[in-house]
């Protein structure tokens, strides 16, 4: 046997390998052209219909809890943009995908390859068809940006970019937790859906509409309000609720990665369990 030690693999190599794995996914998906085109359009239509319904009814009411269409579009678009980017990147950890890999045995195949496990899972379920949703979400954000009464500064842009980054990490963390739970039980999948998809819908609208205790729960217990609601409030020049200071609007890039780091710690526990039971 060779004598080479197990030095950490160079980051550049891992990145290249990740993109090679994504490339394989993309080529595989493009084999079925019609199915791909239909799926891509349908993916956008599902989100599109939901927002369209909101846009169509808003004129009858004038505003949503004091928020104009443009302002809601900014909030809604940012949440959707972050969620779909996350969905693209973390698809391999999504509970249904991961449990399918475990059941089919391809998860053991990952373990038999000399590459860090997360790189392989990240590279395993890249749903290219969701790109249409990215475009749609970006369009909604752009509409929002054009309609709100804000003198845009570099700080605002950085704040919102950080907000998206934080949301990607936050929801990515939820996906990792959900996927890890399937090492124990598959029944937990629907429970995680409340957190992931429910959380996404929750932060798509201004938190002020949910009533005091719900808003406080999602500020201090589950820090979802920091993700996009506070940054957008700040950009719109409105004070944060509950007497929170202005800098709290910039915490999204901290909150998200913290959850993600905790999620990966849990992931390692799950993988250790897999090594104990083999299923």
């Amino acid at each position: 046997m060779g004598r080479q030690g197990s030095r950490p693999l160079p980051a550049l190599y891992l990145l290249r390998l990740y993109f090679r794995l994504l490339g394989a996914q993309i080529r595989s998906q493009l084999v079925y052209r019609t199915a791909f085109a239909l799926d891509a359009l349908a993916a956008a239509l599902v989100t599109g219909a939901e927002f369209a319904a909101f846009v169509l009814v808003l004129p009858r009411f004038g505003a949503l809890g004091g928020w104009t269409l443009g302002e809601v579009a900014l909030l809604y678009g940012l949440a959707e943009l972050a969620f779909v980017l996350m969905d693209l990147g973390f698809g391999g950890f999504d509970a249904p995908n991961l449990s399918a890999h475990v059941r089919s045995g391809s998860f053991s195949t990952f373990l038999l390859r000399p590459v860090p496990l997360p790189v392989q899972v990240f590279g395993s379920d890249f749903a290219l068809r969701r790109l249409t949703r990215v475009v749609l979400a970006a369009g909604i954000v752009a509409y929002g940006v054009s309609r709100v009464d804000v003198a845009w500064s570099v700080g605002d842009v950085v704040l919102l970019a950080g907000s998206v980054l934080g949301m990607v990490a936050f929801f990515g963390g939820l996906f990792v937790v959900g996927g890890t739970l399937t090492f124990w039980t598959v029944e937990s999948v629907e429970a995680m859906n409340v957190l992931t998809y429910g959380g996404r819908t929750l932060i798509s609208y201004p938190m002020s509409i949910y009533g005091e205790w719900l808003r406080k729960t999602f500020t201090f217990l589950i820090p979802a309000a920091f993700l996009s609601y506070f940054p957008v409030l700040h950009v719109l020049g409105r004070p944060l609720p509950d007497g929170l200071p202005g800098w709290a609007a910039g915490l999204s890039p901290l909150v998200g990665p913290l959850l993600l780091a905790a999620a990966f710690a849990f992931w390692r526990v799950g993988v250790r369990r897999y090594h104990g039971t083999g299923s």
Binding site: F61, A63, E187, G198, Y210
Partner: peptide
């Protein structure tokens, strides 16, 4: 599955109620 489905349903329903009531103002 029915139990978790109900919980999910209730949560999304609550969000929808909040949006509608906020629209009414």
């Amino acid at each position: 599955a029915t139990f978790w489905g109900l919980l999910t349903n209730l949560f999304f329903g609550a969000l929808r109620v909040a949006v509608l009531l906020a629209l009414f103002g």
